[in-house]
Simulated scan of single mutants.
Amino acid sequence: MEEPKQIALCALTGAFIDRDASVVERYFAPDYIQHNPAIPNGPSAIPGLIAGLSKDFSYEPGMVVAEGDLVMVHGRYVGWGPKPMIAVDIFRVANGKVAEHWDVLQEEVPRSATASGNPMFTHP
Rank of each mutant, 00 (worst) to 15 (best):
94 A>H: 14
44 S>W: 10
91 F>W: 05
83 K>C: 04
52 G>F: 05
81 G>A: 15
42 G>D: 06
102 W>M: 02
88 V>T: 15
77 Y>G: 03
51 A>M: 08
87 A>W: 01
74 H>Q: 07
31 D>V: 14
68 G>P: 02
98 V>I: 11
48 G>D: 07
54 S>K: 06
19 R>M: 03
84 P>H: 00
39 I>A: 10
21 A>E: 09
70 L>T: 12
27 Y>A: 06
44 S>D: 15
35 H>M: 11
42 G>R: 06
8 A>Q: 08
90 I>W: 02
96 G>R: 10
21 A>K: 12
80 W>V: 05
53 L>P: 08
25 E>G: 14
22 S>F: 03
101 H>R: 04
43 P>C: 12
17 I>L: 05
69 D>C: 04
30 P>D: 14
43 P>D: 06
90 I>M: 00
61 P>T: 12
40 P>Q: 10
69 D>A: 10
66 A>N: 11
84 P>L: 02
53 L>E: 02
59 Y>A: 12
65 V>F: 13
7 I>M: 07
70 L>Y: 09
97 K>I: 13
104 V>W: 00
41 N>P: 05
52 G>S: 13
40 P>I: 11
97 K>L: 13
89 D>L: 04
64 V>M: 07
61 P>Y: 05
91 F>E: 03
73 V>Q: 03
39 I>C: 10
25 E>I: 11
55 K>I: 14
84 P>F: 03
54 S>T: 14
27 Y>S: 06
7 I>C: 08
13 T>I: 09
37 P>N: 08
6 Q>D: 15
26 R>Y: 00
57 F>V: 05
10 C>T: 14
72 M>W: 12
74 H>Y: 06
30 P>H: 15
71 V>P: 05
39 I>N: 11
36 N>T: 11
49 L>G: 08
40 P>Y: 08
74 H>K: 08
25 E>A: 14
79 G>W: 03
38 A>R: 13
98 V>E: 00
8 A>P: 04
82 P>D: 12
37 P>L: 07
93 V>Q: 02
35 H>C: 12
19 R>Y: 08
49 L>F: 04
89 D>C: 04
14 G>K: 03
96 G>K: 10
7 I>S: 04
87 A>L: 13
30 P>I: 15
70 L>H: 09
87 A>P: 10
52 G>V: 10
76 R>F: 00
106 Q>Y: 11
71 V>K: 04
17 I>Q: 10
24 V>Q: 02
104 V>M: 12
46 I>C: 01
60 E>Y: 07
83 K>M: 07
32 Y>F: 14
43 P>K: 12
91 F>Q: 01
101 H>E: 01
34 Q>D: 00
10 C>N: 13
63 M>T: 15
82 P>Q: 11
52 G>E: 00
71 V>M: 00
104 V>D: 00
12 L>T: 09
90 I>Q: 02
57 F>H: 05
